[in-house]
Amino acid sequence: MAGGFIPFLVMVLVQVGFAGMNITSKLALQTGMNPIVLVAYRQLFAFLSIAPLACWMEWKTMPKMTWSIFFQIFLCSLTGHQNAGATGNQLFYFVGLKYSTPTIGCALTNTLPAFTFILAVFFRQESVRIKTRTGQAKVIGTIVGVGGAMLLSFYHGKTIGFGQSSIHWKYADKLEDSSSSTDDKANSILGPFFLIISSVSWATWLIIQAKVSKKFPAPYTSSAYLVLLGTIQCVVIALCFDHKPSAWSLSNPMRLTASIYSGVVCSGISFCIMSWTVQKRGPLYVSVFSPLLLVIVAFFSWALLREKLYIGTAIGSFLIVFGLYSVLWGKNNEMKLEDSVEETEDMKEINDEKKDVELQLPLPLPSNGNHHT
């Protein structure tokens, strides 16, 4: 019982950790911090936390690094990984978060399985199998999930009244008052747009990473390379947009907290915990906890930041979560079917080999009862 409770507990704590990243990052952006600078600092602190672990875990077993593998890791660093961190995914996510809310950011992150399925079919890593129940579940889940993302992005509707929170964080009001405001109507479109692009970037990473994992089976080392390259890329991009020393200052406590927290907790610690859970319970077990993050962030955003929840946001989030579980259900059952087919084929090969061996064995000589001395 304890063996089943510990993976559950640590995955809940991981989602709470991610929720804290969304809240602290949003507050850091409200101080006027450039999203690109925030990503650069997150990559740097992530590298400092993952690199020692990679040396300790994989120094003796690390495969040989080739230019081909290094180039593929470089492509991974350009696209994205929400946990280990990378340029494309992180830049689009934090820019989208700046012009949106933590709740919408978490909701649109759950569109990842849908976009991954679309790209995997395009690159022939997945088959649709529309005539099967699993194929229909994946297609329906993809359509519903993307539709929910569109509804959440372009329709708000009336606010859902939950009353005022008694634990509101007044510090957030000071940051919001001091931040530069932009047009809300433009933000309601621009923020979700960048968040969707972030999920597409992450899905692209999964397609590339599938090839890297086969040629370079060292997840901690490849992640260390990934965040190091991502740090260099983000620093170069950030300096092109804003090279003033004040933009890179971490004298503000919230900027320093968000940078260290997102890099160490959400890239270093969470990556190790999720890797351990995948080994114990499999990737699907880790995936089903994603919607829990949406619930936690929605609560803390309402309680601490006084974020308003709209009908469109609630319905869109529900459709996204429904689509997520539909795709995961289809993929899980498809993998079980493939495993059973492989086991059947393996047993058939073993039986065929046994028959071949029996046919090759010499037949015993017939006994006629005569004995010669």
Score class of each variant (00 low, 15 high):
I118R: 02
G147C: 05
M11P: 09
T79V: 06
T111E: 08
A84H: 14
Q43F: 11
S77V: 07
V144Q: 05
Y41E: 06
L151A: 11
G96C: 03
A107P: 11
T79N: 03
T87L: 02
C76A: 12
P113D: 11
P35L: 02
V16Q: 11
I104K: 08
H81T: 13
I118A: 07
I23W: 06
T79D: 04
F47A: 06
A120L: 00
A28L: 00
S49D: 12
G80E: 01
L75I: 15
T24R: 06
F47Y: 03
G141D: 11
F70I: 12
V144C: 08
V14N: 02
A19C: 11
L108M: 06
C76Q: 08
S68I: 11
M65H: 04
Q43L: 09
T79W: 00
Q30P: 10
L78S: 06
G141H: 07
F92L: 13
P63W: 01
L119K: 02
Y93M: 10
R133V: 15
E126W: 03
F115C: 01
Q82N: 12
Y41H: 02
I6G: 08
E126P: 09
M150F: 12
F45V: 11
N34P: 10
A28M: 00
G147P: 09
F18D: 04
L75M: 13
N22H: 14
I6F: 10
K64T: 15
K131N: 12
R133Q: 12
